[in-house]
Write a protein that binds this DNA or RNA. Structure first.
Lengths: 154, 154
DNA sequence: GTGTTGTATGTTATAGTATATCACGGTCAA
DNA sequence: TTGACCGTGATATACTATAACATACAACAC
């Protein structure tokens, strides 16, 4: 599941890009962080923290929750991944890394999540916030429903 | 906390309105559901399920989690309350009940959440979804940051 | 070299959020 | 009166996330 829509870029290419992003931020893509990022790529869609945890392996038994949560925090902080609030899940950023606000279209049927640029929606949100004199730090825009494929299947 | 911005309407008035909404949907505002709704009103801001649970009282000891979650599901289903995904919290609908998509502006400092109409933002979201042939069932738009008061205080 | 600082990770425990499941009682219509 | 539906009670458990403290190691100043 979630293995459809393979990303055009080669895995090695994305990895180099991710490392470049980290270096640019003065941070390091450590083995653990890289592993979690690759698991997110492999998932190809929303992934739960504990599912990632189970796939972490590790020589001295399984990894512990803080390990994967720290890595996820890091990846989200650098824009390499996103947190999907309405699923309590995480997804690799569809374009490598982005500082932009993105929208997730989450299919209730197949569980996949499509990431699209927020575009004008965020502009309007900024207007609304300005009218309320509210200073936005972070924006979450998520819509759930049926993706094109699942509509066709139904 | 959260007790500022008292709602203009009288509590009894809101209650009648809520009952009307339920009746209109062919549903019943049972004592438990009403109790949870009143707790949300009393809170005046985002409330956590387990905090509500603790305030439920009940003669034979405290209420159990499913009781409050069922009531919350009901209230959200009828538009009498909203779920705030990025807080894992719930809030009474600011206008009694609404079918509309609303935006929450969540203050990181005081924890209050202001509910505003989605307005154009949701139109743009609809456009974006249509372009992806995605059929939206539910929309979550939440922004967090600093409210006007907390900006002034800082 | 020694100490110090900062960052990443390991480890244990626990807090916090949510639902599955089965049982019980009431209402209402067939 | 029986059966379907709904709301609730009750128990248990699943799932999500973080606190708190310990360890390791590299970079740098002295």
């Amino acid at each position: 599941m979630h293995s459809h829509h393979a990303h055009p870029e080669d895995r090695a290419e994305r990895l180099v890009e991710a490392q470049r992003v980290c270096a640019g931020a003065g941070e390091t893509l450590t083995p653990i962080r890289q592993k979690v990022l690759e698991l997110l790529w492999a998932e190809g869609g929303p992934a739960k923290a504990y599912d990632l945890l189970a796939k972490m392996g590790g020589e001295s038994g399984a990894a512990k929750p803080p390990t994967v949560y720290r890595a996820l925090d890091f990846l989200v902080r650098l824009g390499l991944a996103h947190r999907i609030e309405s699923l309590n899940a995480f997804a690799a950023c569809g374009v490598g890394a982005c500082a932009r606000t993105t929208i997730f279209l989450i299919c209730d049927s197949c569980g996949d999540a499509q990431e699209i640029d927020a575009g004008h929606a965020v502009v309007d949100l900024d207007h609304a916030a300005a009218a309320a004199r509210f200073q936005i730090r972070r924006t979450v825009i998520e819509a759930s429903g049926l993706c094109a494929q699942c509509q066709a299947a139904a």
